[in-house]
Amino acid sequence: MIETETIQKKGETYFLNLRLLLITTVFVGNAIEPLIGKIVGMHSLYLWIFTFHMPLFVLVTGYFAKSNLKGAQGRNLLLQIAVQYVIFQTLYSVLDQTLFHVQNIHRSFFAPYLLLWFLISHICWRLITIAIHKFTGTQQIALSLILGVLVGYLQLDGVWLSISRTFVYLPFFLIGYHLSFEKFVLFFTTWKRVTAASVSLTLLIVIALFMLGLPEGWLFGSMTYTQLGQHHWYAGAMRLAIYALQFISATAFLAFVPTVHCWMTELGRRTLYVFLLHGLLIRFAAISGIYNYVSTMSGALLVIAFACLLTLLLAQARVKQWAHPFIEPKVTWIIRLERLALGRPL
């Protein structure tokens, strides 16, 4: 029992450290997006980040879903995510209209605003995982890969209800959900970590030399094959190739994650705050015109440094104390209303 608890604790520590690294790459990726067309190296870095950061973020989300997928805790979390979505979908949409003046964005609760797709998909991943619980882990992952390929053939806008990303990233959620950290530790030995780190850095070089023409839409997972300009019946083969790229890149990036409890661990508990709030800072930076003054590598490195710094600031306990009612809203009032409506005792 003690050994099992120790493994679970080490697993929690490892994936909290990973969460902080991933939210940092999310912030950096979004911060350098306006620079990818005018500063050498930024496009390569951008594509490299997108080969692993969302797949791994979804995997980590699946890993932590083990402890609260079902029961009252799971239900309350689903309600909380739904309230988060309503709050931030409204906030971002209002600011877009009144302050940011961003054009060509679907403003609807059925079309998640930019990064908010993750909330809708998170709800769906949990519900799908519950729905297919009778299948073995291997069968679930195999089924999810098939669905991830097939969803691209739908003749609709993949943004609506985040249907495309939900199924494209579902395999990573299920891999995380069924991941045994004990087996992972035994497999990911020191020499394999060194090899994996080398693979990750090599991949960055390969992207810079040979893959700059890869449409980002394949890595976003938000577009159908038709939207990506692929009308052939075998377009799904490209999705499988992207899956292979993402799996290799994600596995390789794991080599950079500290395995011990450190300053990163507690910050990793508050990455949701960074995720939901950093989009506001990105929008403010965009309308401020600051990117007009960034045209050199040194300027780009400064942008990256600020993104890393702001990640650490948004993950501070004081930010959680201030933003807690909006980021992790209480849902007891919804449960009370439901019981009143159904005539159940409070």
Rank of each mutant, 00 (worst) to 15 (best):
L340N: 13
T259K: 09
P215V: 11
I163F: 13
M211K: 00
G158A: 08
G137N: 14
G158F: 05
I290L: 15
S162D: 12
K10D: 14
I207W: 00
P215N: 00
G268V: 09
T4F: 01
G268E: 10
A241P: 00
T51E: 04
Y92N: 06
T166C: 10
L337D: 07
I120D: 07
V159R: 08
P325R: 05
T271F: 09
E338F: 11
F172I: 02
H122N: 13
L313A: 12
R318F: 14
G343I: 06
L340M: 15
Y85M: 07
L154N: 05
P112L: 05
E12T: 13
L18D: 03
F52L: 04
V260M: 04
P112R: 01
Q8R: 14
T166W: 10
G268T: 11
I123H: 07
S93C: 10
K66A: 13
I7K: 05
H53P: 10
E328I: 11
F184M: 14
A317V: 14
H232P: 00
V319Y: 03
F247W: 06
A286Q: 10
L45V: 10
I120G: 08
W117N: 15
K183I: 07
R165N: 08
V102C: 01
I81H: 05
I141A: 11
F247Q: 01
F247T: 15
E182M: 09
L115S: 10
R344P: 03
H261N: 13
T271Y: 06
M223L: 12
V274A: 09
H133C: 12
P329S: 08
S44T: 08
L312I: 13
Y63M: 11
C308V: 12
F256D: 09
W333H: 13
H178D: 09
A237T: 07
R339T: 03
G289Y: 08
A196G: 04
M211P: 00
R269Y: 02
E338S: 11
A300R: 05
L147E: 01
K192C: 02
G213V: 01
I290D: 03
S180A: 12
E266K: 04
W117Q: 15
L346P: 00
V260S: 09
G148M: 15
Q80T: 12
A235W: 04
L219V: 08
P34D: 11
W117E: 13
F188R: 01
E266C: 01
A142G: 07
L161F: 15
K70L: 11
T251E: 04
Y273I: 00
L119S: 09
A317K: 15
F187D: 03
I290H: 05
A244P: 01
A196R: 10
S222R: 06
Q103W: 04
W333N: 14
H261Y: 14
Y225L: 05
I123Q: 15
Q103M: 09
G213Y: 00
F284L: 15
A31Y: 04
I23W: 02
